[in-house]
Design a protein around this nucleic acid. Structure first.
Lengths: 226, 226
DNA sequence: AAATAATGTGAAAAAATTGTAAACATTCCG
DNA sequence: CGGAATGTTTACAATTTTTTCACATTATTT
């Protein structure tokens, strides 16, 4: 019924959680590190990810950050220590809950149940398409309609548009866009953003000026008044 | 903006949470026991309830159960022990999160923020706008309105205005302005500031004298008392 | 009131930013 | 493997913005 991904480099930990979760009817997948988790997220739709902070290749926090860019999947973080800074940082980047090792499997399961129960109903709200005049945006289905006509775009265009729309009415610098849409590991040129904005504007045709240029800064999505 | 109810029989606990929460902009109400909390829930719409398990008259779990019958308000439970049984029971009756005493106020605040953010999906539609008479300033969206009319400005004008407004009622020397708005690496003329003040005053038209000249010093933003 | 100093203003010169297209690089697929 | 699609960089023109500077105006001091 529900798919769970358990990402931890310790096999024992994965085993324990898997056992408990499968007993409660979840389908459990495993990943050994953050990178692997990230790859799996791209392919499979998980309902929850249980992730260790300390993992080789890509640590839990970074993996979480990247995952949140792709899909809105709740994350339950496991940590070896109850370090408060870790916790605070985790909550900031969108971790939904936090369990300190050594943990009781029962508690972890209780928290998993709470998170899933809470996350599911909100799906109803998320399915809606945002409508800005003749520009309709369905982020879940990755569809964009211009005057009722569906338009195809490149992946980056979708990502960029969705990010702009999610953060509409907010001034976004090129750096911010690069960091959040491209990823922390992008070391390219500022102007790449401009090129994609150009293409995106081309794709949304008549609504091209919903994407406002903020000279000396970057861009923002804003529906013009009246 | 958000209303929080803190229910605990220990005044000290209530105080601490109240202090932290008010600092973050929440409106905090207090209840000394479960029964009082229940009564208040009937009258006031809270966005979150922080509740102790051990309370006179009506304990936290029972109060939570009763409250959930009336309204769907998220509950963050405080408990003296880290008793696993308590936790499991709490999650079952709809407790959203669980913090064990003694807790760190910062962690509690982080959890409060997470729960509220999750329950009320952020509304990006409107930004906080500072209003000075007919001069409205939305720094997040980089918008400035003069008598309801949106005005376009150059990057430096925005930066300068925002800086002046952020530091309103404070005398700012040209050097200070150059250092903070232009950057430490600007090696130009003092008078550059004057030119930009001139342009800025032009842009905000009727409200031009909200930017006050301080002879021999620099400038400041100050709304004149009629 | 005259002299002095500081600020306001307009316009030209200098600098920076952005839109765009095209070249180049990379990834994705069959 | 090879071609198509996508992504990135680069170059350049058009435009906007910033800075400077000369002079006007205003305020302050003597």
């Amino acid at each position: 019924m529900y798919n769970i991904l358990v990402a931890d480099d310790e096999e024992k930990i994965r085993e324990v959680i898997k056992e408990y979760a499968e007993f409660e009817g979840y389908t459990v997948y495993e990943a050994e590190n953050g990178m692997q988790a990230l790859d799996m997220v791209k392919k499979i739709d998980f309902d929850l990810i249980v992730m260790d902070v300390m993992m080789p290749k890509l640590d839990g926090f970074s993996a979480c950050k990247e995952i949140k860019k792709i899909k809105d999947i709740p994350v339950l973080m496991l940590s070896a220590r109850g370090d408060e800074y870790d916790k605070l940082f985790g909550f900031e980047i969108g971790v939904d809950d936090y369990v300190v090792k050594p943990f009781s499997p029962k508690e972890v399961m209780a928290r998993i149940n709470v998170i899933i129960r809470r996350h599911k109903p909100s799906d109803n709200t998320k399915n809606e398409t945002l409508v800005f005049g003749g520009l309709e945006i369905d982020m879940v289905g990755r569809n964009v309609y211009v005057d009722g006509e569906k338009v195809d775009m490149t992946p980056k265009e979708y990502d960029l548009l969705f990010y702009l729309v999610r953060n509409r009415n907010i001034a976004l610098s090129r750096d911010k866009l690069l960091e959040d849409v491209w990823g922390f590991d992008f070391f390219g040129d500022d102007r790449t953003v401009d090129t994609h904005i150009k293409m995106l504007r081309g794709s949304i045709g008549a609504y091209r000026d919903y994407i406002v240029t903020l000279r000396g800064l970057g861009y923002k999505f804003e529906v013009p008044q009246s």
